[in-house]
Computed example of a mutant assay.
Amino acid sequence: MSTSPSASLIAAASAAAGHQQFPGGTLYVVATPIGNLADLSLRAIHVLGLVDAVACEDTRVSAQLLRWLGLHKPLVALHQHNEQQAAEGLVARLLAGERIAYVSDAGTPAISDPGAVLVAAAARAGVRVMPLPGASSAAAALSVAGDARAQGFRFVGFLPTKSAERRAALQALTGAPYSQVLFEAPHRIQELIAELAELAPEQTLTVCREVTKQFETIHTAPCATLPAWMAQDKQRERGEFVLVLHAAPAPVGEVGLPEEAQRTLRVLMRDLPLKQAASLAAELTGESRKALYQLALAWKQDAGDDAEDEPDTGAGALSG
């Protein structure tokens, strides 16, 4: 960060965002780069130039960023040890009409970083809070995990450090139908990989190391294989880690169909004829239409209902 950007960067930021309104008495929650300065948005640069003060997790880190931008702003420390007290003073300034930005050391504030207490205090006081989105290691990891099976995601962050609590937390993660984003320190990454290999060997894990930085590494594989992969290169243990534990494979139920496909079929059968319900369920889930039809027929028969469609055999039968 030793070289300041040219005036053209500041001009570009003004051209891109200058036509927008950035009212006084507003808290601007500004995402900053997680390792690559090029990820700082033009709108963030413009707002950092407009505000009256910058509240930040670490004044040394934020001062370095501002120097790189050629900006000089009063800095106010707001971190996990003083957030409540610092928030009160900042809210008073906001109520007086000042523009104040909040930045954490890297990424989007209030996501495993300070900022939530300040935002809550501002909201209680009736102060407008405006997000300036940008870099987020959690979002970056999710975007490259490729967990197409997931039914949404959950942000976990750092696990407990005490052994018993950590083990219980890890056990609670396994088997979920959604992606789960974890952070881990380099001195504990081997332990975490080994524990996941034991507790969820068949689940997939995406390991993201040094995201956006020069030695970025992204590797996706079953948890059971990852301790050996990690041991192949000591460099893989170094840096900052974001991990995505993929959704667990759906349990297989009757006639080899996943439970999610069976639930979809049951819902459709409430209002549709069997063949139509099976065909639509196959389209929605990607499962075999024939298998879905046979299951629907079996359910009808078990319930003592007359089948409303002809058996799925012969010409014109549904295919897989």
Rank of each mutant, 00 (worst) to 15 (best):
M1V: 13
S6K: 06
S8M: 13
S14W: 03
S14Q: 12
A15Q: 12
A17M: 07
G18F: 04
G18Q: 13
G24D: 15
I34E: 01
N36Q: 10
L40S: 05
G49L: 02
A63F: 03
H79E: 08
H81C: 08
E88C: 08
L90F: 09
V91P: 00
A92M: 09
L94F: 04
A96I: 08
E98W: 11
A101Y: 01
P109A: 09
A110I: 15
G115P: 11
G115W: 12
L118G: 02
M130I: 08
L132W: 07
S136V: 03
A138T: 04
L142T: 04
L142C: 10
R149D: 15
A150C: 08
P160H: 10
T161M: 07
E165V: 08
R167L: 15
L170D: 05
L173K: 01
Q180I: 01
P186N: 06
E198I: 09
C208V: 12
R209Y: 03
T212G: 01
K213W: 02
F215V: 06
T217P: 06
L226G: 01
Q232Y: 06
Q235L: 14
R236A: 00
E237C: 14
R238D: 10
R238F: 11
F241Q: 00
L243E: 02
L245P: 04
H246F: 07
V255M: 11
V255S: 12
R266K: 14
D271G: 08
Q276E: 14
K290L: 15
L295P: 02
A298W: 02
K300G: 10
D302Y: 06
A303H: 00
P311A: 12
A317P: 07
G320V: 11
